[in-house]
Nucleic acid binder design. Structure first.
Length: 107
DNA sequence: CTTGTGACTGTAC
DNA sequence: AGTACAGCCACAA
C-alpha cells in the first residue's frame, strides 16, 4: 500500500487537465509537501506508480520544461509521445513552452 | 543505527 | 548558454 503523501501527489497530478503540464515543484506545492526538497519526493512518488496506473504522470515535467523520467532503453520518449498526442508541442531539444503549457490550479 | 541513491530546484560562477 | 554545488526528504540495504 502506498504512503499517504504519495497518494496525495497522485491526486494532484490527476487534476492536471489534458494538454497541460505541471512541474515537480508545482505538484509539491499543491500536494502540500513541506520542505524544499519536496520536488524530489514528488519524483519518488511517481516512480512508485504501477504500470497500469491511471495517473497522467506524463504531464509532469521538470522546471526546464523537459520530460525527465529515466530514459528507458525500450521507450526513449514514451512520455513525450503521450504529450504530443494531447496537443503539446515540443521544441527541438525535447523542450516544451512552459509559459504556455504550464497548468494553473485556477483558470 | 548509517550510508547511498534519486521522475528535482534554485543560486552561483 | 552550461556546469557545479547545496538543500532537504523518503526509501532500500
Amino acid at each position: 500500500m502506498a504512503s499517504e503523501r504519495n497518494q496525495r501527489v497522485w491526486q494532484v497530478v490527476a487534476r492536471i487537465p489534458e494538454g497541460k503540464v505541471a512541474t515537480y515543484g508545482q505538484i509539491a506545492a499543491l500536494a502540500g509537501l513541506p520542505g524544499r526538497s519536496a520536488a524530489r519526493q514528488v519524483g519518488y512518488a511517481l516512480s512508485a506508480l504501477s504500470e497500469d496506473t491511471q495517473v497522467p504522470w506524463h504531464r509532469v515535467v521538470n522546471a526546464k520544461g523537459q520530460v525527465s523520467l529515466r530514459a528507458d532503453p525500450e521507450r526513449p520518449d514514451y512520455q513525450r509521445w503521450l504529450l504530443e498526442a494531447e496537443g503539446v508541442a515540443f521544441g527541438l531539444g525535447g523542450v516544451l513552452d512552459l509559459a504556455r503549457y504550464r497548468w494553473k490550479d485556477e483558470p
